[in-house]
Design a protein around this nucleic acid. Structure first.
Lengths: 210, 210
DNA sequence: ACCTGAACACCGTTCAAGT
DNA sequence: ACCTGAACACCGTTCAAGT
């Protein structure tokens, strides 16, 4: 009583450990669920709620960790602003595509964690080096994240196998959709990294064009 | 037997009716689920599987219908390619933002339905009018859809109320994140239509800049 | 303060059965 | 051919209870 000694049980968990377990779940190819994360921690599902208010908070924390796994350090250094922004965008795409189910987390997760803040600050710095005034740099930073996350969402959605996609595109009627039929070989590569880099380069061109 | 007369029961359902019911579910503010759609049709959940192979097929059909609800006709006519593309992109954004839960459908739905095909063909036509050769027009069309869907996904994710977002942004420490703190007022509008149009205009600038 | 047992209201999906 | 009853393996979340 004098020392207020009753410290209670030592907590065996923490938000960091929960997030790490969620990343393991993702790496195993499964979707992040409260129950799957709890199982990996050898704990009952409702234990998670001692540390996080709800599933959205879990998603948010995991999403922020994924932005960190993409290595925001490539946004720093003395390389050109274009390389810095481009390399990080490609890294985010890779990190998310390697983990099916990762992009879904961003649906319920506003990008407001510490990693998102760091990424945002460094994007602003890069666009300042590109010559953009504050307001445009802010809008540009958001536009880049919009493009990157949109690309992952669309790629993830297309679960068709290579031959399935080829067959579908080959089946486009040339009389009703001549341009689509003619460009089917390009559309077959829409989910590839080359298309991602092409669109990103054009976006960056446009962002600094005034 | 002569007339092969046993036609069996008249089907009371169809894929079109199921999709219409799913849109009603979305309009009511609920997420599309097999069970919610079935309930609206006064039918048991497993009945849906007589018409569609799985949930992904339902999502795909509903997603295509949403692209149609955005009115692809604005992509035609003798207005400038920029207005055509811009108006449709804004319409897609509006249609999806008006229905929380709509953007989630695009996760499991490759854009391969009839409306997606029509939209694709008309985007190719618009970019041809902008002077792009076939391959670049194809890549440009996909980049625009990438940007539009990414913007909706990010807007939808940010469920913070106005004051919550303002408080969060005001709390950014100016010493560690000077640029973010300075541009917080702009970041507060990232989910608005003005930001969407700004980024889209820059993307279109970049797409036709060569 | 931390963790659990039990329960609730949801999911998508299957399979055998009825008409 | 179309629809259902019943069941299975999942979800997120709550609440009272145990330590």
């Amino acid at each position: 009583m004098f020392f207020m000694g009753a410290r209670g049980p030592q907590p065996s968990l923490s938000v960091a450990k929960i997030v790490a377990a969620a990343i393991e779940v993702l790496d195993a190819g499964d979707a992040v669920s409260v129950r799957a994360v709890a199982a990996r921690l050898d704990v009952r599902p409702n234990t998670i709620y001692t540390y996080l208010p709800d599933k959205a908070a879990l998603d948010s924390a995991v999403a922020d960790r994924l932005l960190e796994l993409a290595n925001p350090d490539v946004l720093t250094g003395r390389r050109s602003w274009r390389r810095r922004v481009g390399d990080y965008a490609v890294a985010v795409r890779t990190v998310l595509l390697e983990r099916p189910g990762a992009i879904a987390l961003f649906h319920s997760a506003p990008m407001n964690g510490p990693a998102a803040l760091t990424v945002g600050e460094r994007l602003l710095d890069a666009f300042a080096h590109a010559g953009l005034p504050d307001e445009n740099a802010s809008r540009a930073a958001y536009a880049v994240m919009t493009y990157a996350l949109g690309a992952v969402a669309l790629s993830d959605a297309d679960s068709d196998s290579e031959p399935e996609r080829a067959a579908r595109l080959a089946g486009i009627p040339a009389d009703a959709f001549p341009r689509s039929a003619r460009t089917a070989p390009v559309a077959a590569t829409w989910n590839g990294e080359e298309q991602f880099r092409w669109g990103l380069a054009r976006l960056l061109d446009g962002l600094v064009s005034r």
